[in-house]
Deep mutational scan, measured.
Amino acid sequence: YYKILGVDKNASEDEIKKAYRKRALMHHPDRHSGASAEVQKEEEKKFKEVGEAFTILSDPKKKTRYD
């Protein structure tokens, strides 16, 4: 999950949140509406992965379990 968000394992809550926003905007489906179906599908997959990574890393209990 750290790799997906592009943050270090010791990243602060704020750094995780900023990285999530950056990656979410980058891969958001609306940004790729004019792209081919294949690209849209890949970006949607990445967008979901970013969301999942943020869900785990932003919750202290889940993050501890993950680490």
Rank of each mutant, 00 (worst) to 15 (best):
D8C: 05
E15K: 01
D59H: 00
S58R: 00
M26P: 05
A53L: 01
S12F: 01
E52K: 14
E42I: 09
K46S: 04
S12R: 05
I56A: 11
Y20R: 05
A37W: 08
E44Q: 12
K3E: 14
P29C: 01
A19G: 08
D8T: 10
Y20Q: 12
I4S: 09
A37R: 13
Y66L: 12
H27E: 03
K45T: 10
A35I: 02
E49K: 06
K61N: 14
K61D: 15
D30T: 12
V50W: 00
Y20L: 06
E15H: 01
D14A: 14
E52R: 10
Y66V: 15
K9F: 05
R21C: 11
S33C: 04
N10C: 09
D30G: 07
I16F: 03
V39L: 08
L5I: 01
K45Q: 15
Y66M: 05
R21L: 14
V7P: 04
K46Y: 02
L57H: 06
H28P: 08
F54S: 11
F54H: 04
E44A: 14
K62C: 08
K62F: 06
R21M: 12
D59N: 08
T55H: 14
L25D: 15
D67S: 06
R21Q: 15
Y20H: 00
S33Y: 05
Y66S: 11
K9E: 13
E49A: 13
K22Y: 09
D67N: 01
S36E: 09
K46D: 04
A11L: 06
M26I: 13
E44P: 06
A35M: 10
S36Y: 01
K17T: 09
Y66N: 07
I56V: 15
K41M: 11
L57W: 01
E52F: 00
R21E: 15
P29S: 06
E38C: 09
A37S: 08
T64P: 03
S12Q: 09
F47P: 09
A19W: 01
R31V: 08
L25S: 13
A19Q: 06
D67C: 00
A53V: 01
P29V: 02
E52M: 09
L5C: 02
A11M: 05
T55W: 05
K45A: 10
F47D: 04
P60M: 07
A19C: 02
K41V: 10
T55Q: 13
E49W: 03
K22M: 11
H27S: 08
G6M: 02
V7W: 00
R65S: 15
Y66T: 13
E52Y: 01
K48Y: 02
A11K: 01
E52I: 02
E43V: 04
E43P: 02
K17A: 13
V39R: 13
A35P: 02
G6T: 03
G6C: 00
T55G: 12
H32D: 01
M26W: 03
Y20S: 07
L5P: 07
K17S: 08
N10P: 05
P29L: 01
D14Y: 07
M26L: 11
K48S: 10
M26D: 14
E44I: 08
A35F: 05
R31M: 14
K22R: 13
E42C: 08
A35Q: 11
R21P: 08
H28V: 04
E38M: 03
S33V: 15
D30H: 05
T55C: 08
L57R: 05
Y20D: 12
H32I: 04
E44C: 08
S12N: 09
I16S: 02
E52D: 10
D8P: 08
F47I: 04
G6D: 08
F54Q: 07
A35H: 06
P60I: 10
D67V: 05
M26N: 03
A19V: 02
Y20K: 07
Y1H: 03
H28R: 06
R65I: 10
K41S: 10
R31N: 12
L5S: 09
K45G: 04
D67H: 00
G34D: 10
L57S: 09
Y66G: 11
I4V: 12
K46R: 10
I4M: 07
K17W: 09
D14G: 04
A37Q: 13
E49F: 01
K9Q: 13
A37D: 13
Q40K: 08
A53P: 01
I56P: 10
Y1M: 13
D8Y: 00
E38I: 06
E13V: 15
D59T: 02
D8R: 02
S12V: 01
P60Y: 03
V39I: 09
K62R: 11
Y2N: 13
G34I: 06
K63C: 03
Y2F: 09
K3G: 12
K17Y: 11
E52P: 02
S12C: 07
K22H: 12
S12T: 14
A11P: 03
H27G: 04
I16L: 06
K17N: 10
K45D: 05
E42M: 13
K48M: 10
T64Y: 14
A11V: 02
K63A: 05
S12K: 11
E44M: 15
D8S: 12
T64N: 14
G6H: 02
K45C: 03
D59Y: 00
I56M: 10
R65G: 14
E49P: 04
Y1E: 00
K62M: 11
Q40A: 05
D67Q: 06
E44F: 09
M26C: 07
P29T: 02
H27M: 04
V7C: 06
Q40F: 01
L57M: 02
D8V: 00
K3A: 12
K46G: 02
N10L: 05
K45N: 06
A37P: 12
H28N: 06
G34T: 15
D8E: 14
G6V: 00
T55I: 00
S36H: 07
F47L: 14
Y66D: 12
K45S: 10
H32A: 05
R21V: 14
R31H: 04
L5R: 01
K3F: 02
S36P: 13
K48N: 08
Y1C: 00
K61M: 10
K62L: 14
T64C: 11
P60K: 12
Y66K: 07
E13Y: 13
H27Q: 08
T55L: 04
N10I: 02
R23Q: 13
K22S: 14
E13D: 12
E38P: 01
L57T: 03
H28C: 08
E15I: 05
K18A: 15
L25K: 15
L57K: 07
D14W: 02
T64M: 13
R65Q: 15
Y2S: 07
D67P: 05
K46A: 11
K18I: 12
E44R: 11
F54E: 10
V50H: 02
S12P: 06
E15Q: 09
G6E: 08
R65W: 15
T64W: 13
E49L: 12
R21A: 15
K45I: 11
V39D: 02
R31L: 09
L25N: 11
M26H: 04
P29Q: 06
V39H: 06
P60F: 07
Y1N: 11
F54A: 10
A53M: 01
E15F: 00
K18S: 13
R21S: 13
E15T: 07
H28F: 02
A53Q: 03
